[in-house]
Amino acid sequence: MSLHLREKVAAVLEETGQYQRLGRAVDIFLILLILANVIAIVLESEKALSQTYHSHFLRLEIISVSIFALEYVLRLWCCVDKIEYAQLKQPNWKKRLKYATSPLAVIDLIAILPTILMAFITFDLRFLRVIRLLRIFKLTRYSRAMQLLLAAFKEESSSLLAAFFIMSVVLIMASCGIYLIEHDIQPDKFGSIPKAMWWAMATLTTVGYGDSVPVTPLGQFFGGLITLLSMGMVAIPTGLLASSFAEQLRKRRDAFNEAILHALVDGEVDENERQHLEALRIELGLSPLEANQAIKLMTSQRVHHMYCRHCGKKL
């Protein structure tokens, strides 16, 4: 009985099978609750509003934390029925531990932990408010685009680390260079390498804050070189993420097309296969229009290959 119930809960939370609509309704409710929390936390930073509506803010916080805690416990309980964990040959407690250390589960925990800890530890309200604002990252679970971006970060992590390492080296070289050139002329702004790093950072990121600028001809020439160099440096991680993002989209479309071809083995897509494709579409973050176009294209290609292009007879 409990196993059957656990599978139902997993289906609702993951929006699969016959519980897609219910799961979608739950997701929309949680999204609205997260947005209400973020708005309330921002408004609560106004002292007048905090004093006037303190009881309302407290009531919303208690209700929200209770719901988020229930969601976290349910996800931790039924995660063993998710496809990625069900295939693992491990005890359920190890599967749950692996899920608990996943990025999305950690975000869910952060959403409820500050309020729970507040009952045992005294927090600075400003610090607590900022920590509670991290609940906005729970929206990552319900945004396929954010999941796609996180997948791009994960896939290009080594390349991004290499790019940031190169940028760090250039940052140190730029700081040392402007320090040697300008430290006698502007000791208050370039009197040490750590002070010069602020200018180097603002220049390399092409922000150009303007509070620290070289005044000597050699310093201005050096600053111009760093500015030109920064255009290429900033483009490296941007290009990596853009290409990886496009690659993630292509992989998801290819996975959906393969599922369509698998469903078309018998020549048509029945109702069960259509439901499976719909669940896969939601999981991959494809739009209904894009999915329907893919189904029509794969079906037409399948029909085309079933008949001889010379005589028109079925193969």
Results as ranks from 00 to 15, higher is better:
residue 142 Y to D: 08
residue 45 S to L: 08
residue 267 G to K: 09
residue 195 K to S: 08
residue 81 D to L: 02
residue 206 T to L: 15
residue 60 L to G: 08
residue 74 L to T: 00
residue 194 P to C: 09
residue 165 F to V: 03
residue 223 G to C: 02
residue 67 I to G: 06
residue 15 E to P: 00
residue 213 V to T: 03
residue 172 I to E: 11
residue 257 N to T: 00
residue 290 E to K: 15
residue 150 L to M: 10
residue 88 L to S: 03
residue 115 T to E: 12
residue 63 I to A: 11
residue 35 L to N: 06
residue 101 T to Q: 04
residue 108 D to F: 04
residue 158 S to N: 11
residue 305 H to T: 03
residue 56 H to S: 13
residue 63 I to K: 02
residue 42 V to I: 15
residue 312 G to T: 02
residue 112 I to P: 08
residue 236 I to C: 05
residue 314 K to P: 02
residue 184 D to G: 04
residue 70 L to M: 14
residue 50 S to I: 00
residue 127 F to W: 10
residue 77 W to T: 04
residue 263 A to K: 08
residue 149 L to H: 11
residue 63 I to V: 15
residue 112 I to G: 10
residue 91 P to E: 11
residue 237 P to G: 07
residue 224 G to V: 01
residue 57 F to P: 05
residue 140 T to F: 10
residue 35 L to G: 07
residue 210 G to D: 06
residue 150 L to E: 12
residue 182 E to W: 05
residue 53 Y to L: 14
residue 182 E to Q: 10
residue 91 P to K: 08
residue 32 L to S: 08
residue 152 A to H: 06
residue 14 E to F: 02
residue 215 V to C: 01
residue 287 S to N: 04
residue 7 E to R: 15
residue 252 R to L: 03
residue 129 R to C: 09
residue 51 Q to E: 15
residue 76 L to R: 05
residue 275 Q to V: 01
residue 71 E to Y: 12
residue 255 A to H: 10
residue 146 M to W: 13
residue 162 A to Y: 07
residue 252 R to S: 11
residue 151 A to S: 14
residue 242 A to F: 10
residue 205 T to W: 04
residue 80 V to G: 01
residue 217 P to R: 13
residue 29 F to C: 10
residue 155 E to M: 09
residue 94 K to C: 03
residue 63 I to Y: 14
residue 130 V to P: 00
residue 100 A to C: 04
residue 157 S to W: 13
residue 312 G to L: 09
residue 114 P to F: 09
residue 232 G to R: 08
residue 103 P to Y: 06
residue 183 H to L: 03
residue 117 L to Y: 06
residue 81 D to R: 04
residue 295 I to V: 12
residue 293 Q to S: 05
residue 89 K to A: 11
residue 303 V to M: 11
residue 25 A to Y: 06
residue 39 I to M: 10
residue 174 A to K: 04
residue 265 V to K: 14
residue 261 L to W: 04
residue 236 I to A: 05
residue 9 V to A: 15
residue 171 L to D: 07
residue 118 M to R: 13
residue 26 V to W: 13
residue 52 T to G: 01
residue 101 T to G: 01
residue 45 S to H: 07
residue 294 A to L: 14
residue 246 A to V: 02
residue 230 S to P: 11
residue 17 G to K: 09
residue 224 G to N: 14
residue 178 I to W: 06
residue 306 M to F: 02
residue 23 G to A: 07
residue 281 R to Y: 05
residue 207 V to I: 13
residue 106 V to W: 05
residue 220 Q to H: 04
residue 178 I to R: 05
residue 271 E to R: 12
residue 61 E to W: 06
residue 187 P to A: 02
residue 115 T to V: 04
residue 54 H to D: 12
residue 68 F to N: 08
residue 231 M to A: 09
residue 209 Y to P: 01
residue 201 M to I: 02
residue 140 T to H: 07
residue 283 E to H: 13
residue 61 E to L: 12
residue 10 A to E: 15
residue 94 K to D: 03
residue 254 D to V: 06
residue 133 L to I: 03
residue 17 G to Q: 09
residue 164 F to H: 12
residue 56 H to F: 11
residue 215 V to K: 15
residue 137 F to M: 12
residue 239 G to D: 03
residue 197 M to C: 13
residue 33 L to S: 06
residue 305 H to P: 00
residue 237 P to T: 00
residue 297 L to Y: 10
residue 115 T to Y: 12
residue 128 L to P: 00
residue 104 L to G: 07
residue 165 F to S: 14
residue 7 E to P: 02
residue 54 H to T: 01
residue 228 L to S: 09
